[in-house]
């Protein structure tokens, strides 16, 4: 378009809108992150290492990463059929199921936390059944995984849905007419274009999982070295006014989630490039 026209038609309000945006972003986001950076910079490398390598912190970080990884895996395993069913089939109650996918976003994490604990606890209806089978969920790492699976549902399903909806069914039909078995159609026709979305859904659920607090603290039991997650270690240090220690652990968590989320962005960018290239 002619840039001359654009210049004459430059809309009003840029100064105000831009000024408010920059001011608000500076006060609400940049200032807090600057405070964190300053606090982190005030720690010596030795202090930082001492804090982050203490057995309790290492155990908490390992637990947070492992449980988030397992939960994101479970989310993918159930998220693929769920997204498929919601995008492809019509059946009574489908709209209800579809609306419920967003429940973990809408339901406050503390409410989810106490509900899951009541459900999976030794006196809960599901917890009692599982206990009779010799499986303990609440107050074990498995309980943390359960809470993180709940939190992660929408990330995987909502990332996959639009991609499944955009798949061209004629390709599947063509593969079928050419004699491909259902398994072959799934693994060689349907799955490959879903892989980028699967990876982003997995990573988003994982990144959310390592920082999750509210839904986990009730069901985990919070035993140091056993079921204490990394955000809870930060919380504990804050309660003892150990801001330096809290900052050190926070920096580790932030770095990991930024790496994961940047990887998602890169993958999405490449996926977009691949799709337009293929068109």
């Amino acid at each position: 378009m002619a840039s001359g026209l654009n210049r004459r038609a430059l809309l009003p309000g840029f100064g105000l809108a831009f000024g408010v945006t920059i001011f608000y972003v500076s006060v609400m986001i940049l200032l807090p992150f600057a405070a964190l950076a300053l606090k982190a910079a005030s720690l010596s490398l030795h202090e930082f290492y001492e804090t982050v390598s203490s057995p309790r912190v290492v155990a908490a970080l390992r637990l947070s990463f492992l449980t988030a990884l397992v939960a994101a895996g479970i989310n993918v395993a159930f998220g693929v059929p769920a997204a498929w069913v919601l995008s492809r089939y019509s059946f009574p109650g489908k709209r209800l199921l579809d609306a419920m996918v967003d429940l973990p976003f809408a339901l406050p994490t503390a409410v989810a936390g106490i509900a899951l604990t009541a459900m999976f606890g030794p006196n809960g209806w599901l917890g009692a059944i599982l206990e009779r089978l010799g499986v303990k969920i609440a107050f074990t790492p498995a309980g943390i995984v359960v809470a993180l699976v709940f939190i992660g549902v929408p990330f995987v399903v909502r990332t996959l849905q639009p991609v499944i909806e955009s798949l061209d069914r004629r390709v599947e039909e063509a593969a079928e007419t050419l004699g491909a078995s259902p398994a072959q159609v799934f693994f060689r026709v349907i799955l490959p274009p879903l892989v980028p979305a699967l990876l982003s859904g997995f990573s988003l659920a994982f990144a959310r999982g390592i920082g999750e607090y509210g839904s986990v603290v009730f069901i985990s039991g919070n035993m140091p070295m056993r079921t204490e997650i990394a955000p809870l270690v930060i919380m504990g240090k804050l309660q003892q006014f150990d801001y330096a220690g809290a900052t050190a652990v926070a920096v580790v968590l932030l770095i990991v989630s930024f790496i994961v989320l940047s990887a998602v962005r890169l993958a999405e960018w490449r996926a977009g490039f691949w799709r337009t290239g293929a068109r």
Binding site: P32, T109, A207, Y213
Partner: peptide
């Protein structure tokens, strides 16, 4: 860059969000 900065709070653990504000407005903060 501005869009990325606006999305930042989304990738921060809730507990760390609280920590950020303690480090600005708490005693001993900025």
């Amino acid at each position: 860059l501005l869009k990325t900065v606006i999305a930042l709070p989304f990738s921060v653990s809730p507990v760390i969000s609280g920590l950020l504000f303690v480090l600005v407005y708490g005693s001993g903060g900025l």
